[in-house]
Design a protein around this nucleic acid. Structure first.
Lengths: 322, 322
DNA sequence: ATAATTATTGGAAACGTTTCCAATATCTGT
DNA sequence: ACAGATATTGGAAACGTTTCCAATAATTAT
């Protein structure tokens, strides 16, 4: 059997309480500490996490729930969350819901079963308020319910600015391709901003914004180009949408940025394999991750936190615009 | 405080043992079962996972350690692992090592602390055999140590076949671009196969195979094209390598597949945003994931498992070859 | 009807920690 | 040297399950 705190106590000729105090930095004589540490070393003792959790009524685990891991935006976000969780001493449980509501429910269940201390939702469905009541939850881009804190970026203003930017660069026929979230989300503000600016300048909108299963972007983009072949500027809402738009454009023979200028809304595109740099509204993914983990951490510790936090995006001038 | 099994017992006028038996399918009278279930429902009782784990000396959690999540191959693999883990009733802890050896060590530590029951390594470093002794580990593409079971694909033969295929399609100047793993891995067999076939036909090798940080593929590919501009066939070892090679080729003005044919070794490219389909040696990612989870599961249950399992790849004829 | 099984049950012990309390040892100031 | 404070310690209780054992209830065979 595994070696326990009791074995250590016996070996060091002290009580179990003393060993525990050595482990957790309680008040203990230097001489005894030496003895205990030696025993711990000799026996290769490792404290049992489960027992620790049971006694403390805390798991030290938080979860992050994303619709899909195999996606540049979400996996970048998840890695940033992992970093911050690490720093704050949390273990991270990563779950990809795969659009299955059961998977999402299982997270709520894990909270009730005290398998995790809290969770970050970056995801699709509405859940029963009663089930969620009092659970430490936070989310990205949308309020899970009235009380659940969330972090977002300034979708509306940044998009409006980006569209204006295209206009200032001479675009006359500006299109919008996007992937609509399933539930209400501040991401929808991008579409609204686009439409508002189009209206302001009296330009007819050219828009495709469907609910898209990851991997099917190309179909949507192709249909967009089919409907609006004369487009000279595109705002692509989302990481993969932008990549797909760019690739489709060059495969179709558009010359970027001469015939067609592209602006993307999303992450940093550090893993982009083109030598082109996409002009983009960059979401501060790392900062969003950091903030949301801190919010969750605070909630678990019983602190008050603001319900809505808006972080600033950054405009990156690449070479897909003039 | 949370409602416990004791509260349920009191409410149903039975002993705690009976409640436990209802929960775990022990022998209990139908009439009493009803009573207990009603109490469970009334009180919204959820069994505490931690207590359960402590008593059973099992966590029901396995970990998968990948070098990086934000990468098409690894995230696809991880999702497949999650699927299979789910099916077998395991919770999955996903960890991205980010090339940090401490992160890898932390997994070994979690085993010793009984925070997880076992782990799947898809990763970089060598570890101390003593630390790993007796721990339920498995890995992908390489033996972590002599005894650690692993699953791989038929790298050598599939690569040799692919190169021969290029030759049969008329390629005279065949190049190899790859990303070398840090430690010994069966992935290296791809390079060996390429060299062997080149030697067999008396063709001079054109090769770039460095240790590559994900995101830096383009630099490598550019230098390859710079060194061998006259190449007419490329074997790209790995998911991102192939994508980058394709994009670089069309950006540089090669016409694919007329001037240049490309074969990729790796996953299914389902998320590929081009309308082109890459000709590829497709690794059975889902099957590898499934097999490795089963192996680990068996090990944890004390069963014997084969130390090496080789799965067959599948050749996909796309349109990046003639 | 009675003995022998079998089905069902309650409750204590155990899993490996942390924490509290009481007890002892060591110190301080006079 | 002594009272009072402080530092250090051992060990029991508790965290919420599961499981074992003994006890009782229900069933069967004779």
């Amino acid at each position: 059997m595994a070696v326990t705190i009791k074995d250590v106590a016996r070996r060091a000729n002290v009580g179990v309480g003393t060993v525990s105090r050595v482990l957790n930095g309680g008040c203990v004589n230097d001489k005894t500490r030496e003895l205990v540490l030696k025993a711990i070393n000799d026996l290769r003792f490792k404290p049992n996490s489960t027992a620790h959790r049971l006694r403390k009524n805390r798991t030290g685990v938080i979860a992050v729930l994303v619709p899909i891991i195999n996606h540049p935006f979400f996996s970048e976000f998840v890695e940033a969350v992992e970093d911050e969780a690490d720093k704050l001493g949390w273990s991270l449980l990563i779950v990809s819901s795969q659009q299955k509501i059961d998977k999402e429910k299982s997270i709520i269940d894990k909270i009730h079963k005290k398998e995790i201390d809290g969770a970050i939702f970056v995801t699709h469905y509405k859940h029963d308020e009663a089930d969620m009541r009092g659970c430490p939850f936070v989310s990205i881009d949308r309020p899970l319910s009235d009380k659940v804190p969330y972090v977002t970026s300034n979708n509306y203003q940044a998009t409006a600015d980006a569209i204006e930017y295209l206009i200032s660069k001479g675009c006359k026929k500006i299109g919008y391709v996007g992937s609509k979230p399933i539930v209400d989300s501040e991401v929808l503000q991008r579409e609204k901003a686009y439409l508002d600016v189009m209206a302001k300048y009296g330009m007819p909108p050219r828009i495709v914004n469907d609910v898209i299963i990851h991997g099917d972007e190309r179909k949507t983009v192709d249909s967009f180009f089919n409907d609006y072949p004369d487009v000279d500027g595109i705002f692509a809402s989302g990481y993969t949408m932008a990549q797909t738009t760019y690739l489709a454009a060059i495969e179709k023979g558009y010359s970027v940025p001469d015939d067609l200028q592209i602006i993307a809304y999303d992450g940093s595109f550090k893993k982009w394999s083109s030598n082109y740099i996409l002009t983009a509204v960059e979401q501060p993914i790392a900062e969003m991750a950091k903030t949301i983990v801190q919010r969750l951490s605070d909630i678990i510790d019983g602190k008050e936190v603001p319900v809505r936090t808006v972080l600033e995006t950054k405009f990156i001038k690449g070479n897909t615009t003039k």
